[in-house]
């Protein structure tokens, strides 16, 4: 039983890592700019597709393709902010909401046109399996978990320890006060979107390597991402990390010990229960 619990926890950690990255990207945009960036899932799939293209069609090693895809993600984030969201920044919230929906359809269509409708799996060549007692950890999953931890730590250092990070947090806290303190608020959305998109691309690569990328998968991811946001607390970075991990492990344990047929249902029931007792989410601040 203990082995099964540990195995399910490790199973859940890999997918939890993906949820964390998706949720961090979403929470950054939502917490700081107040935009429900629905296209985030489709954009992360774009990153996965791009990596697949670089590896299979251009013959790049996967370790060379990943930084290129992340760089493309950063540039794409800038474009999204400048072309899609900046024009509606000062308009009613519903405008940004509609732009987000339109952008989702556009990116989905773009993925379909550029990369086709077939499911693709990013070839990594990692097929070793580590065994410890009765627990098995595939090499690829281990690297995904480690990469997710690394990215989360890097982001936390950036946000907590750098001047730009402090500026981002200041804008999130109080935009007017940040302006008065001399923060250049015009560049903050650009930084936020590039950072968020890069995290999304990283998540897309992980999904593409662990599982598969196909039309429609991004939508599911973004729904889970928003669920994590609510579970962890809107706009809270530690909340997104905790929420993503909890959701991943809960799904895995629920499927293993209750029923795989209700895997998603059980995960969302847990979310509802948490919100009943902590409406602000696990680590969100009470209003």
């Amino acid at each position: 039983m203990l082995i099964e619990i540990l195995q399910q926890t490790i199973n859940g950690l890999a997918i939890g890592g993906v949820y964390v990255l998706i949720a961090l990207g979403l929470t950054t945009v939502f917490g700081i700019l107040g935009i429900a960036h629905f296209a985030h899932g489709s954009i992360s799939m774009f990153g996965g597709y791009l990596t697949f293209f670089l590896v299979t069609a251009q013959g790049l090693p996967v370790l060379a393709a990943i930084p290129l895809a992340l760089l493309a993600g950063i540039l794409l984030g800038l474009l999204v902010e400048i072309l899609a969201y900046r024009p509606v920044r000062n308009a009613n919230h519903i405008n940004a909401f509609i732009v987000a929906l339109g952008l989702t359809m556009m990116v989905e269509g773009l993925n379909l046109q550029l990369f086709g409708h077939e499911q693709v799996v990013i070839p990594t060549g990692l097929s070793k399996v580590f065994r410890l007692g009765g627990i098995t950890v595939p090499e690829l999953r281990l690297y995904v978990i480690l990469a997710a931890i690394l990215l989360v730590v890097a982001m936390m250092i950036f946000v907590e320890r750098t001047k730009t990070g402090q500026a981002i947090r200041a804008v999130a806290e109080n935009r007017d006060a940040a302006i008065l303190m001399g923060v250049n608020v015009k560049t903050i959305p650009l930084i936020v979107f590039s950072m968020s998109t890069a995290l999304g691309v990283a998540a897309g690569i992980m999904v593409g390597a662990l599982f598969a990328i196909a039309p429609g998968i991004g939508e599911g991811l973004v729904v889970k991402g928003f669920a994590v946001l609510i579970l962890g607390g809107l706009g809270s970075f530690p909340g997104a990390i905790l929420g993503g991990t909890v959701l991943g492990i809960t799904e895995s344990i629920a499927a293993g010990f209750i029923s795989s047929a209700y895997k998603d249902v059980i995960a969302f029931v847990v979310m509802i229960l948490v919100l009943l007792f902590r409406p602000q989410g696990l680590l969100g601040r009470a209003p």
């Binding site: 099964e4 662990l210 598969a212 895995s252 293993g256």
Partner: peptide, 11 residues
């Protein structure tokens, strides 16, 4: 749409 079958397989 499921791609992660490890929970079921572990069980």
């Amino acid at each position: 749409k499921d791609r992660d079958m490890t929970p079921q397989l572990t069980k």
